[in-house]
């Protein structure tokens, strides 16, 4: 193992968490390399130094009480939310769905009666062609205007006659 790799692995080696292979390779390397030996001294010294920082903070006597209060508060909030959600599920959704259906029926009925009243008014007028146009427009029957006016038999005969024309020539 080369110095560069050994130096990178030294921290994990000194923490005793390097793999068996790495452990052996680093140990062998350190037996001969003074430069890496110096690095080991520095890292050991650093670890020792960091452990000197002994300042610690103690929990206040009311530490648990504050947590317990916060838990109770959070659970109360959660219960309120759960209750609201349950009420929404049990009441608001069925009521809402019913309201949508009722509203649909109401709008549909009113819209239908308006259309039929208009048609009846138009039909009552003397001008039948105007009435026909209004009906066609309101029921969108103009799209059927492309259909031929003849009977199916006449159409068939016509088509046959057209297909026989070139032979006759």
């Amino acid at each position: 193992m080369k110095c560069k790799k050994v130096i990178k692995k030294l921290a994990i080696f000194l923490d005793g968490q390097a793999g068996e292979k790495d452990n052996e390779a680093i140990s062998n390397h350190l037996k001969t390399c003074q430069c890496c030996g110096q690095e080991v001294k520095e890292l050991t010294s650093l670890s020792f130094l960091l452990k000197q920082e002994k300042e610690s903070v103690q929990a206040s006597p009311y530490f648990w009480n504050k947590i317990e209060q916060a838990i109770i508060q959070a659970e109360t909030n959660r219960n309120v939310l759960d209750t609201i959600w349950e009420w929404v599920n049990r009441t608001l959704i069925p009521v809402g769905a019913t309201a949508v259906v009722v509203l649909g029926l109401f709008v549909g009925t009113n819209l239908g009666s308006v259309i039929y009243t208009n048609i009846a008014q138009i039909l009552n007028q003397d001008n039948s062609s105007l009435a026909q146009q209004e009906i066609n427009q309101s029921l969108n029957l103009n799209t059927l205007n492309d259909f031929p006016q003849e009977s199916i038999g006449e159409i068939y005969t016509g088509l046959l006659a057209e297909s026989n024309l070139p032979e006759q020539r």
Partner: peptide, 13 residues
């Protein structure tokens, strides 16, 4: 300390 209390609350919830 406040952070630790928040952490324990999160852990509980």
């Amino acid at each position: 300390e406040e952070a630790a209390q928040e952490v324990f609350l999160k852990v509980y919830l």
